[in-house]
Design a protein around this nucleic acid. Structure first.
Lengths: 223, 223, 223, 223
DNA sequence: TATGAATGAGCCTTCATTCAT
DNA sequence: AATGAATGAAGGCTCATTCAT
């Protein structure tokens, strides 16, 4: 105990907090559970982080940064790589961050929690991490749409959402997928396959999107 | 007070529970809040439903049926309507069930909660409601993929997931969308527009999917 | 327990709260102690009074009203009784309220606490109870000062303070008095004697106050 | 930090403790607040004084001596000065010790706390400081009462209490005075004026006290 | 000599639940 | 059929204190 270098308790608290918060959500998680798991006293959380909320905040930024450092959205690709390859890298790293099982797997789950039940910590998270990711994706999408599409144009935004939605679905609906398609695996190879499918589906859509303006007629949707 | 018919209190409790559970989740919601909103006594929940959990179960079954009855997945289209129109109807009704603000809009939100933090009630929910929806979507997708695609084939499943993912994203990531694209509206017209985009994006993908088998080469993903 | 008429627990909580708050002060007193003494559950305080602060507020108003009802400041004297007699009644009732040992003895102690460490409840206390008492005393004092003294004049106010100060001293400095003059008793007769002394001292002062304007010269205080 | 001489930290702790204890009382004051104000570590109090209680004790003895040294009860008057002047000096110095705002003003406030919630430290305080003050005041009062009044006679004691009560009232009831007479000031001039009034009021009383034995008849108090 | 880190007891409050009516 | 009152467990947090350095 007392042999810890001081920073050690902080570390263990963050680890335990990641585990518990990502599994139970902010409100349902209890400081006591986290401390017991970290082998620390209940008061340690308040000493190091100023309270439950402070711990959660600290965890959130840290988890995100860890995930991004481990699986950068360009996966090491040069900036001038083909847009198709960069899209695949973006999607693949996205899934890896979300579905990872290791110590850095809280990122996705926490972000997901944060989106459903936002806490005051969400705003800075969006500004610091999500907005840059969004811009990066929209840049790739605009390039693939061709025809001089702008990264900020509504159409580009919608297509980027279509891609992000596919990525998030696989881990957000895990409980359903496990029941509807129990044969699906989320190991390294399974993730690669999933990334391949999403990329392919999206590329097919983007490459033909420009020529589909009149498609609404056949859909039957009211004008 | 004593003038209410017994069924009336039960009804009001379910309404309030839908409101509160869908907004705050099972754990964070409190019986007191629900009872206050329903104008009932704190003990009423235990009297009528046996406790918090009983109320939640009762609500879950009821809410789903209400939602599906109000916005059926075919939106009244005949079974032999063009696949494109049926896809649009499926997507549109999906979004309406999820994003609706009215009294019967808990369906989507509760299902979402259930996926995130599954309770024992999830299994029967999947069997009774989600599986049929999934089959219906896969039927449409198989038809659009052409080339004799089977509704149960892995590729069909993945494409169905791509579509479901796009639908769920818009309301699951509402907190993010509100921050990244605050101009987006989710009123009736906005939902129609969203459904139009998702349908168009998905149709573009599905119609060209069969010819894109060799696309993986250009992506650069490891074999 | 369950046989209580409901109001009974509330009553017992107030009694215990009076005992504990007056002895230990707001901050140092604990809800647990009060509840244990009242034979009630810890949560009862929040059910009946909304929390520690609510209990304290309720107690404060109640204690004051009880004290005033039991020992009215005019002690039943007619409004046209001689000013001397009314002064004695005021002082005597003041001491009785402050030094009483029975169930209605919290009034003085609580007021004293409130004056030293004011809580948000003090303001309404002053408006509702203390201000009227102050006006009553100043009325008597003005009459005794003669020479057309006004109840609001600075000199009247100061003399009223001189009287109030004498009254409060005896119970505020009880710890000191017990050590410096341990023979002093605060039973009924002792209180009567004390009231007699304070009245006599104050009357001597008031009746000669008007003629003492030049007294400052002999005092030696700087101009 | 480490550059401070050991005595320096101790000094700063005592200063901060005086500030905080006199304002909030023993129980409500926290070691953390004191240490933060003193710019010292949380553990410093235990290192230097053995704990919260030790710090309080040390402060109490010191504060009283400081106050008495700064404002001696005779204000430098010769022992054979007129009794009137000595009474004024006593009252004036009393008020200065109690109401002073400077660094050495804790004396009065701490003593007041001690009277309200006596700690074991009170007994020695009474013996060493309060008893001598009491004797001094009673000596003056006896002289002013004339007629061979003894400093120890009950009547002398009561009159001394009447004077002490007036002095203590002004700062013990500050919260009330601020609300009932917000125009009253407690700066140097205000304190002088107050001391003047109390002296005058008391002199009027004392000088006529001997001739007022039959006054009880007019009061109406039961024999 | 002095400190950052850690502790455990205790605080007020909130909750789902039960009981007597 | 329904309710106001009461309960005990647990929650987040604060505090004085101790310990290893």
């Amino acid at each position: 105990m007392a042999l810890d270098s001081g920073e050690d308790t902080k570390r263990r608290l963050l680890d335990a907090a990641g585990e518990v918060f990502s599994r139970q959500g902010y409100k349902a998680a209890t400081v006591r559970t986290i401390c017991r798991m970290a082998g620390a006293n209940v008061a340690a959380v308040h000493y190091h982080f100023g309270g439950k909320e402070g711990l959660y905040s600290a965890l959130l930024s840290e988890a995100f940064e860890t995930g991004l450092r481990r699986y950068p959205p360009d996966m090491g690709l040069p900036a001038d790589a083909p847009a198709e390859a960069r899209l695949y890298a973006f999607i693949h790293s996205f899934l890896l961050r979300m579905l990872g099982e290791g110590k850095s797997a809280w990122c996705g789950k926490l972000m997901d929690r944060e989106m459903r039940d936002p806490t005051p910590a969400l705003d800075s998270l969006v500004q610091r991490h999500i907005l840059p990711l969004s811009e990066q994706l929209r840049g790739i999408v605009a390039q693939l749409l061709g025809n001089g599409a702008e990264p900020d144009a509504p159409q580009t935004r919608l297509c980027a959402m279509s891609i992000a939605g596919q990525c998030q679905y696989v881990f957000r609906s895990k409980a359903i997928i496990d029941r509807l398609a129990p044969e699906m695996r989320f190991d390294e190879a399974g993730i690669r396959a999933l990334a391949g499918h999403i990329t392919r589906f999206s590329l097919c859509a983007l490459k033909n999107f420009a020529d589909s303006a009149e498609m609404a007629d056949k859909i039957g949707c009211p004008p």
